[in-house]
């Protein structure tokens, strides 16, 4: 049984639902907007390592029957059914507890999960994630995080075109360090800011799903293609892109090293053909790219959740680092999915 968690009308879920139907999968929609008709019980006991039941919309499901999970909850505080509730209301408390427990169970469930919350954390710090990416053999943009304006000026003199963006996963518009931005440079003394050498080339978004990779090239003159119209007045253009076997394999390995069963890897491919990895999105909206190009990602997600193909997420970067540093054998019992 495959469990799909989120808002049924959300595009990624609509497409996944269609794919699961097309493939004849046994699946169950956990509509978080019906949280008041939902309950979960989880048990750890001498008799069972992990067991429990999920009640939803009049149906009851044994947690041990679930072998695949697509976990895409929106922040439950903003659900229309919850947002206007008083702080101490039963509805709000029930919703909070339910939305806490489902991911807790998914964290340790012996199921394929796209994605566990623990794996979705690496991009909370972009330079931290960049270190993990670099350890996987990818070129990364030259990056400086500093609160020293003079150091920034030296960095710009060395690299020419420089962009700046947030250090954390707070969404920010990637912007170029131009003369106007330089006039505000003294403000960085209060909190270090991330600067990067601009890498010329085309943006390529790679979605890895298990051991498969789908690459989409985005052509635009904008610094940040998500804001192409705002920055250039023209929409970005999307097309399927051939990564080649070696780079595709490296992308799959990168996603797996971060513990991500599905990842959105942002590459910039230079005119010389060198692929730089800018960052990895742990909660990619694949449907946007699928709609632009027709690449069959929803089917791939469905097939993966149905148990087809290999799962590679057994070795997270932290696990690899732990093993390298302690020479300890890391049991696979947590990673059998």
């Amino acid at each position: 049984m495959i469990l799909v968690c989120g808002i049924p009308s959300e595009t990624s879920i609509v497409r996944l639902a269609q794919a699961l139907e097309q493939l004849g999968a046994s699946w169950f929609m956990l509509n978080q907007r019906r949280v008041s008709q939902s309950a979960i019980e989880i048990g750890v006991s001498a008799a069972a390592e992990l067991e429990g039941t999920l009640e939803h919309d009049g149906r009851s499901l044994a947690l041990n029957e679930i072998t695949g999970v697509y976990l895409r909850f929106m922040d439950d505080r903003f659900l229309p059914e919850v947002r206007d509730e008083p702080l101490q209301s039963h509805t709000r408390a029930h919703s909070r507890a339910f939305h806490d427990l489902v991911p807790q169970w998914a964290e340790v469930a012996r199921a394929r999960v796209i994605n566990r919350y623990s794996a979705m954390g690496s991009n909370y710090s972009k330079p931290y994630q960049l270190q993990l990416i670099s350890q996987q053999g990818f070129s990364v943009p030259e990056t400086l995080v500093t609160n020293d304006p003079e150091r920034v000026l030296s960095f710009r003199a060395e690299h020419g075109r420089v962009i700046y963006k947030s250090v954390s996963s707070e969404r920010s518009i990637v912007s170029e360090l131009d003369d106007e931005a330089l006039s505000r440079l003294h403000r960085i003394r209060w909190c270090p800011v991330q600067f990067q050498a601009y890498v010329e080339g085309d943006d390529v978004r790679v979605h890895t799903i298990g051991e498969r990779a789908f690459a989409t090239r985005i052509r635009t003159a904008a610094t940040d293609y998500r804001y192409a119209r705002r920055q250039t007045g023209a929409e970005a253009e999307f097309e399927p892109f051939d990564l080649g076997a070696e780079l595709a394999d490296r992308c799959v390995a990168l996603g797996a090293s971060l513990g991500l069963d599905m990842a959105g890897i942002d590459l910039r491919v230079s005119p010389e053909g060198e692929a730089y990895c800018l960052e990895v999105n742990p909660s990619p909206v694949y449907s946007y790219y699928e709609a632009q190009t027709g690449q069959p990602m929803a089917i791939a997600v469905a097939e993966y959740l149905m148990g087809r193909g290999e799962t590679l997420t057994g070795r997270t970067a932290a696990r690899t680092q732990y093993q390298n540093s302690t020479k300890a054998a890391v049991p696979d019992s947590l990673t059998v999915r």
């Binding site: 990364v140 030259e142 150091r151 003394r189 270090p192």
Partner: peptide, 14 residues
């Protein structure tokens, strides 16, 4: 705020 931070990631490591 008087501390000067310099943290680099790139081709030559971190």
């Amino acid at each position: 705020v008087r501390i000067r931070w310099r943290h680099a990631v790139g081709r030559s490591g971190t």
